[in-house]
Design a protein around this nucleic acid. Structure first.
Lengths: 208, 208
DNA sequence: CGGAGTATTGAACATGTGTTCAGCTGTTGT
DNA sequence: ACAACAGCTGAACACATGTTCAATACTCCG
């Protein structure tokens, strides 16, 4: 390998990067608490002592994963399309780790979530102004719900994939779900507002 | 307390039940791998030895939680409303545990997921026949996606609650998201099918 | 070459983990 | 009353975990 002596964060393929990638995969698969430093070290083909030498502690390793995931997702940040596309197109280990991080309420995952929601909210606002998004009484709640919906198959990937047949990471499977979702989002699911009306009625009855 | 000498699974409030409830809560909060037998024992006010005496092992304890969650959710099983209502109306610890179990791919959680999807699919089919649900090209994928969507705020509860202000378990907060979701499901989110069309175009171009 | 500094390791440590076991209650059936 | 038995415990064990440390291999710079 040829690295500049003082290697900054640029050079990859180094042992440090291998450890981070191994941690990303294991954290995503087995959860953070369910993953041991020794397992990560074994996957990366190094000694347990080296991972703590590079990252200080297991917590430091997890933070490095957080940072890497944020970078990987924000890389195409300036894109004009919806912010969530980047998440869904990220590499599989990154997605799996993100799902775990969201459940474990990692600080970085939390920050990423609000960032995506805010980007989505203004994206929807723009669409509303241009006329291709319907009006909403609660744009914030809509943005949050919309993001949650797009994130759902990612978090529940295993179960979704099992029922749709095939690996959820496989594009063919994901496409089926995405298409069904898009159908509901453009034409709606219900033909009348019986459920919305029923919900509103119950909601208004339970409060003055 | 007064229990029949040979106490079946009926009598609750016993130490066994307290342990199970404590485990449910801690598993939901910290994850299964992140929870120690000692911690749930302390929460239940018993010795660690007792929890293994009652459940055989930590794994046995987790299975007991699975069974209990299944029972708690299936209790109102014969209801005519959508199957998911039972999940969303379950007690908070049960919901949190279910979210964790779904991510950890517990067998019971997997079984519950397919059960809910199947119930939802026939519920949607009935609605389609009665005219208050739109037709779909892929009813299976639609049911899976729909269930994922309703499960999403449950799994991402912390982040959703933080952005909507207030405890996600609080009804007031959940209602905001539910209303926004229902709006999208009845009126749709987009006013035209530009995204659906774009998706279809891309999809058909990437395969013969 | 020689010295500086980093990458890397094996062995060890302290602690937390799941689990076992002998024994101590209390209640129950006869 | 007495044996049987389930609920329950404290102490202990074997093991896995995160982390430390001294020492070795390697690479670069003067």
């Amino acid at each position: 390998m040829f690295n500049t002596p003082n290697m900054r964060s640029t050079s990859d393929l180094t042992a440090r990067a291998r450890i981070r990638d191994a941690a990303l995969a294991r954290f995503g698969t087995d959860g953070i608490a369910g993953t041991s430093v020794r397992a990560v070290a074994a996957d990366a083909g190094v000694s347990p002592a080296l991972v703590v030498h590079h990252f200080g502690s297991k917590e430091g390793l997890r933070q490095a994963c957080d940072d890497h995931v944020l970078d990987a997702i924000r890389s195409g940040g300036a894109a004009a399309t919806e912010a969530l596309g980047e998440v869904l197109h990220a590499a599989t280990p990154v997605r799996r780790y993100l799902a775990r991080a969201l459940l474990d309420d990692t600080p970085a995952a939390g920050a990423l979530f609000v960032e995506i929601v805010e980007r989505t909210e203004s994206w929807l606002a723009a669409g509303e102004e241009e006329g291709w998004v319907r009006a909403s009484a609660d744009t914030r709640a809509r943005a949050v719900t919309y993001v949650s919906w797009l994130l759902a198959p990612l978090v529940l990937g295993d179960h979704v994939g099992r029922l749709l047949g095939g690996d959820p990471a496989e594009t063919a499977t994901a496409v089926r779900g995405a298409r069904a979702g898009l159908e509901m989002l453009t034409h709606g699911l219900f033909t009348d507002d019986r459920w919305l009306a029923a919900f509103t009625a119950v909601d208004e009855r339970t409060r003055p």
